[in-house]
Amino acid sequence: MNSENNNGMSLIIKTVTRLTVGFIFIYGIYIVLHGHVSPGGGFAGGVIIALSFVNLMLAYGKEELYKRVPKTVLSLFESIGAIMFLSIALLGFTGGYFFYDWFVYKGEPFSIFSAGTMPLSNIAIAIKVASGLFAIFLVLILLRVTSGEEE
């Protein structure tokens, strides 16, 4: 938050973060994709994906991440998530009503490709939650605390 912290934490934290942040991200994707066969789902997986980015940002400083993930990308992803979920719902009108399960292939139970539109809805919710929460975190962090020391 102050000026000497802009370049991130120490070398140990950077190394450990570089080694583990990929596993956290993959775990979030696992939680999302298996949301309809095991505990988990779009909300929890989305928050885990957002937390992996938060971990990167806390370790490497805000300039490093802000160069790679600008704010327009985040709002783009959030809009993509919302539009995807809404279009899944609207495509149900081909079968007669809102949120109709329009997948023909139902699939085997206990496999990933089953349960119709539910994995797609989970992915849409996860994209939306991850980008929205990370946008909140980014905005709250990047607000400079200037006026506290001035007067």
Binding site: L133, I136, V139, L140, L143, V145, S147, G148
Partner: peptide, 14 residues
């Protein structure tokens, strides 16, 4: 809660 915290930080700035 995130919205309320944002409002609180803004109040602190003012």
């Amino acid at each position: 809660t995130a919205l309320v915290i944002a409002v609180a930080i803004r109040i602190y700035e003012k």
